[in-house]
Simulated assay, not measured.
Amino acid sequence: MTNPAEILPGVIFYSYLSAERKDKVCFWNHHTLVLMVSGQLHLETASQRTEVKAGEMLLVGKNQLGTLTKTPLPGQSYESIVICLQDDLLRKIALEEQIGVEPKYSGPSNVPIPPDPFLLGYFQSIIPYARATVETLPEEMGILKVKEGVKLLLHSLPQLKSFLFNFAEPHKIDLEHFMMSNFHFNVSVERFAHLTGRSLAAFKRDFTKIFAMPPRQWLLDKRLTAARHLIEHKHQKPSAIYLDLGFESLPHFSRSFKKKFGKTVKSVQKYQL
């Protein structure tokens, strides 16, 4: 079985792990509903840090960057059911249910869902398909299950209408604030441009006006400066921080550090000791 397994391709997934895993940077194109069956999940985005434990549910907002740490607990595996709420399907639901334009959503980007017996029962109906080694969920039935989940979600939290049914493209947000909050995520300049609501050319132009240097040069400089601060003042080990600061490998981090500061990471560590 692949991990995560697709119960309904591109829409419903089942994740099973027996050892802790920290995923690389994730980008959520669509709203995503998660149920923890067992184990726990730690989600970190620019604005939130959230833990989800067995039996708890979380709605993750679209157009976000973040990292996931999936942890089995002693004597347990890690199991989760993940439902991707694609915009096309949400548009159909909005038409079927005659949901009009909602006020702009102003709450958190990631919403813990309070305990709800209907939603928990809904997820329980999906688990047998998730654990099956051969049988998959027929597409027609799978779409009906997603629609059912959305309706139950709105029954539990009606205020999520403005969260789920906002189909506007990412607006042209404050570039300086966004980059200062998200520089440590290892994503392409093209993705940063999209997330700030700009074409690549407009992103580079606006970026250079604000930071007086090209995006790639600024990202590297910012990450290395943050790394030196963590090593010198927080006594962090390079092996513990290089991934969280957007570097692909420890050797790449070490070479870049020496090139910028004229000294090795080890020499900085020794100096502090």
Rank of each mutant, 00 (worst) to 15 (best):
P4K: 12
E6P: 05
V11P: 00
V11T: 08
Y14D: 08
S15D: 12
L17R: 11
A19E: 12
E20I: 00
R21L: 11
D23I: 03
C26N: 09
C26H: 07
F27W: 09
F27C: 08
W28M: 03
H30V: 01
H31F: 01
T32I: 01
V34D: 06
M36V: 05
H42I: 12
L43A: 07
L43T: 03
S47M: 12
Q48T: 04
Q48S: 06
R49F: 07
K53S: 12
V60E: 02
K62Y: 00
N63Q: 14
Q64E: 10
L65G: 04
G66T: 01
T67Y: 03
T69H: 09
P72Q: 15
L73K: 04
G75H: 04
S77H: 10
Y78P: 09
E79R: 15
I81H: 13
V82A: 11
C84E: 08
C84S: 10
L89H: 13
L95H: 08
E96H: 14
I99A: 13
G100K: 09
G100W: 04
Y105V: 04
P108C: 02
P112Q: 08
P117S: 12
L119F: 09
L120E: 03
Y122S: 01
F123P: 13
Q124P: 03
Q124R: 10
S125Y: 04
R131K: 14
R131N: 06
A132I: 01
T133W: 12
V134G: 02
V134T: 10
L137H: 02
E139N: 07
E140M: 06
I143E: 12
K145H: 13
E148L: 14
V150H: 11
L152M: 13
L152V: 06
L154Y: 12
H155A: 14
S156L: 08
P158K: 01
Q159E: 14
L160G: 05
N166M: 02
F167N: 00
A168W: 00
H171Y: 10
L175M: 09
E176M: 07
S181N: 14
F183R: 07
H184F: 14
H184P: 01
F185C: 09
F185P: 06
S188D: 13
R191H: 10
H194I: 00
G197R: 03
G197Q: 11
F203R: 03
D206L: 03
D206H: 07
F211Y: 08
R216N: 01
W218K: 04
D221P: 00
L224C: 07
L230G: 00
E232S: 13
Q236V: 08
P238S: 04
L243G: 04
D244F: 13
G246L: 12
G246D: 13
G246C: 13
F247V: 14
E248P: 00
S249F: 08
F253T: 10
F253K: 13
S254M: 14
S254I: 12
S256Y: 11
S256M: 14
K260E: 12
T264D: 06
S267N: 10
K270W: 06
Q272P: 00
